[in-house]
Nucleic acid binder design. Structure first.
Lengths: 226, 226
DNA sequence: CATCGTCATAAGGAATCCGTAAAGCCGGCG
DNA sequence: CGCCGGCTTTACGGATTCCTTATGACGATG
């Protein structure tokens, strides 16, 4: 699934420009015209990367950055700004930004920096995740339990891979549904219940008291790494 | 333990400059004056981060970068270069560089970018708050007490997160109620008593004499950081 | 000592959420 | 055509959570 990128900028022109440029690269783009809108968007549907303009009308961009990090979000943030002063850069980076690009910027460079940040940090081949007796190998699309291979359907695999992508992190119902079933089914929690149950039947030692895939009532599910 | 940084640059002046600047920040610095030396140093003792100048005498810096990645190393690499052209930046970033800084550069900015890259991706700005034997990890939405995970309901978590957001700070009843239950319930202090009590039962060693969540009579509650 | 207000704690019912089984639907394949 | 596996959908019992109320402890005050 392609990465979701949120652009927070009050200038409609730049938003349009980025929407087109990013869209052409296959990214899914969300937009926000103000700090409030941006924070709300992140809360409601956390993107994989944020492009944040510092010159927002309703709130200081640096504060927005801090808010994002204090809320516990860890996705990469690229700061855009007309200000090229060193102090601004240092402040933003120390507040949790992952990169700082001064306007005017070259599209190609920005795209390259986004690719760099989206590039899996773990390395070329992500090591298989082992939890108890089950081994999840995302690179080879294989799951084994106690050495024996477990057959998973397409949907089951998509769900498990998503959960395994962020071990110990809670993934909300909406987030999972959007990523696995598409934006049209963010409210069909019935799917989730059924498929989580199927995975548990196949992977858990005691499906009735899950140790692998645990549920956060009213929030979502998460895959425990130990 | 402080991070180890390898500087690959043929200009002795710049190496000295970086050695002093980085050393002053507490990093351990290794140096290499050529591509061959640099690759050997990485092979022999992989550093936590590499600062790579592109203008090396014996080999093209871009090739060096590719060599590092092809050898399977995943540590962050910051590329330094006198060339500020967009194409150079894009090429370096796409070859696996994590950042690109043009010469001449500001020390403060470079240091900030190094900090940003060395910052653990998992918890950028929110080190889990530990109080006594309980650990509050806002980033992962997990609370542990004496190592064991504590199950919290949605409301319980919302309340605890709010309190943990400003440790040692008194939050008034109204403020808490507005944030957790919404503006319509700013006077339902009964909710608060019940849920504070539930948190205490789950987190305090002796719920009857709270050391974690203390009450300011007539004002509100506050979470002690120690 | 009586009174009042604030707080801690327990307990119950209502509403919500979750797990599970089962049935219908569809497309692929022999 | 008939079988089969996977996807969707429905249904219901049970578990969890939330809200609400009741009771008693404690301290301050007069």
């Amino acid at each position: 699934m392609s990465a979701r990128i949120l652009v927070i900028d009050d200038e409609a022109q730049i938003r349009k420009f980025l929407r087109i440029s990013l869209g052409a690269q296959g990214y899914r783009v969300a937009e926000a015209a103000s700090a409030a809108q941006g924070l709300a968007a992140i809360d409601q549907a956390p993107p994989d990367l944020v492009v944040l303009d510092l010159g927002l009308p309703d709130r200081d961009g640096q504060e927005v950055l801090s808010s994002i990090r204090q809320a516990g979000f860890t996705m990469p943030v690229i700061v855009l700004s007309v200000r090229a002063g060193e102090m601004d850069k240092v402040e933003a980076l120390d507040r949790g930004a992952n990169d700082y690009v001064s306007k005017p910027f070259g599209v190609a460079e920005l795209m390259a920096r986004i690719r760099a940040l989206l590039r899996p940090r773990a390395g070329p081949q992500s090591p298989p995740l082992t939890v108890g007796s089950v081994v999840i190998d995302c690179a080879r699309t294989v799951v084994t339990r106690a050495g024996a291979e477990v057959r998973l359907s397409k949907r089951e695999w998509a769900l498990l891979r998503l959960l395994a992508g962020q071990p110990d992190h809670v993934l909300t119902h909406k987030h999972i549904l959007r990523e696995v079933w598409g934006p049209a089914h963010v409210d069909d929690t019935a799917y989730l219940r059924v498929y989580v149950n199927q995975l548990r039947q196949k992977l858990e030692d005691d499906p009735a008291s899950p140790r692998l895939i645990v549920t956060d009532p009213g929030v979502g599910y998460r895959l425990k790494s130990e």
